[in-house]
Design a protein around this nucleic acid. Structure first.
Ligand SMILES: NC(=O)c1ccc[n+]([C@@H]2O[C@H](COP(=O)([O-])OP(=O)(O)OC[C@H]3O[C@@H](n4cnc5c(N)ncnc54)[C@H](O)[C@@H]3O)[C@@H](O)[C@H]2O)c1
Ligand SMILES: NC(=O)c1ccc[n+]([C@@H]2O[C@H](COP(=O)([O-])OP(=O)(O)OC[C@H]3O[C@@H](n4cnc5c(N)ncnc54)[C@H](O)[C@@H]3O)[C@@H](O)[C@H]2O)c1
Lengths: 256, 256
DNA sequence: TACCGCTTGTGAACGCATGCACAAAGTCGG
DNA sequence: CCGACTTTGTGCATGCGTTCACAAGCGGTA
């Protein structure tokens, strides 16, 4: 791989060419897990833990130990064989790879039920994602401070986003308005969008969209309920079930 | 397993043997997309569209047409070659596979900022996921109706969940309380959990957990911002980007 | 210093998902 | 009834991600 080049093996803190190479090669799925590891590690650091093994960390993060090590290997070799990883070191390297060494200003569009919750949420600023702009169309909301920030009119989105250097836009409007809001955000130069509206957004290639779709999540859960019910029905109907993975039978049956 | 009480309940799902076989084999990723197709199709049906081709539907759902056809093939062959799919037919079959022919009662735990938004949200009941129970520890909230449903005390969770046949539990408490709440839900027989708290939940094998982690979503977006910034820096520094085909063409330096 | 036990990092195999390409199967016009 | 055209359903190749298994490397110990 990239490390087989055997070229330079330096260790600088900021952006190193070798890391650029690596960052491009990190699988999307691994990036999501790195964020989880980071949170677990931060929690450990807060509790005074200074070192951790891949086994411990993987347990805490709910993943396979081998997968964790492979994920970490994507960002470099920062462990010590026979010992484990230094928590602080790992935290700083994951933060660097995830681009968390700088703040990312967030704008929330649509200050209704969900928008209010997001604007009031304290978890974002603490993690380097300060909410710096709020937008809505409702005249009654304009100027009203929510979570300490006054709501701006959606028509001012371009000016405000540029002025406050918004890098992430969060869409919490009703579905019909989502695409239009998205287009405006893109026009304002926002290249990252987090969408809560149950709508498939169309965006140019240079814009990254992630969606949080609660209805879909619910339906996936529903699917599993149904599948389970069917399996149970199959068993009771005498149909031989094939792929049942072995698991400890812990009597969970509760009879009221 | 959990809801064996009602014999007839609502419309009992007609379980066809062939579908059982199929449902077990549907890839997880395809299930998530089926939910999206369903929403798009429902929207089309509302607008009076009766037939649709895989090309049209895939465009609207933002996926590859071949992938869409493969996804649909997991649930059976309900299209007409040379014509396309009947919207109504497709809707009903996807609903059946996803287990949406019956209602899934939802309980929300933690009626703070987010819990209020969820309880007030009209999108769930309309899609077969009625919110029937709310829980909190805050004495000031107990008995207060939110979105039409009075908040119950968390200590009554087992009794209330059984009584209202809750099949999906939503956790919207602060992180430290999440695991404890989760355990209580599991004890109450809830086998599907949607978790908003930034915590890795430990559950028995027979419980399905899905998490919605906004911090992780933000950090994934942040990663892409950083990657992009690095790429731009690389280009301006004269480093050749090997982005598109994975072929590093050396010697070609583009200088503005 | 030499050895021992422990944990990392990774090559390699495997399995799942994606996308292509095309035969099969239908419609429609004549 | 036929032949041209359209679109589905799917076998297959490809690529990505996960898991296994183990050599390499490090700290501790005698
Ligand atoms: N509330 C939830 O728990 C929840 C859950 C899942 C999904 N969602 C989705 O999130 C979105 C918001 O939900 P909500 O419950 O907060 O809705 P809401 O109706 O309470 O709030 C929507 C807000 O968007 C504003 N708005 C409408 N058009 C706008 C536009 N063009 N530009 C800017 N602002 C505009 C409205 O004035 C309103 O304040 C919806 O798409 C909903 O489907 C919400
Ligand atoms: N608000 C957001 O936009 C947002 C965004 C992302 C993640 N989250 C996460 O969602 C969760 C809830 O966020 P929030 O902003 O609504 O918090 P909040 O503090 O406003 O509400 C939490 C509620 O949970 C209740 N609670 C505490 N312990 C409980 C227990 N043991 N049993 C039952 N109820 C209990 C509290 O009384 C309170 O009403 C948090 O974990 C947060 O990290 C929230």
């Amino acid at each position: 791989m990239a490390s087989q080049r055997g070229e330079g093996e330096t260790t600088a803190t900021p952006l190193e060419p070798a890391d650029r190479e690596r960052a491009r090669a990190i699988p999307e799925a691994a990036v999501a897990r790195l964020a989880v590891y980071l949170r677990v590690l931060s929690g450990m650091a807060d509790q005074g833990v200074t070192a951790v093994s891949s086994e411990e960390l993987s347990q805490a993060a709910g993943v396979n130990a081998a997968k964790l090590r492979k994920d970490l290997s994507y960002i470099g070799s920062y462990g010590t064989r026979g010992v484990g990883y230094d928590v602080e070191v790992l935290v700083s390297h994951i933060e660097r790879i995830l681009g968390l060494t700088r703040n990312h200003s967030v704008a929330v569009v649509g200050i209704g039920n969900l928008g209010h919750a997001l604007a009031n949420y304290g978890g974002f600023p603490g993690r380097g994602f300060p909410v710096t702009a709020l937008f809505d169309v409702d005249a009654d909301l304009i100027g009203v401070p929510v979570g300490g920030i006054p709501v701006s009119h959606i028509d001012d989105i371009t000016a405000v986003c540029l002025e406050r250097e918004v890098s992430i836009g969060v869409i919490a409007t009703p579905p019909p308005a989502a695409q239009s809001v998205c287009d405006r955000l893109v026009s304002a130069g926002v290249q990252c969008i987090l969408n809560f509206a149950p709508v498939v957004l169309q965006v140019p290639d240079n814009v990254e969209v992630r969606k949080v779709d609660l209805a879909v999540e619910m339906q996936i859960l529903s699917f599993h309920v149904a599948r389970r019910a069917d399996e149970a029905a199959s068993v009771s109907a005498g149909i031989v079930s094939a792929g049942n993975n072995g698991l400890g039978v812990d009597g969970m049956v509760i009879r009221p």
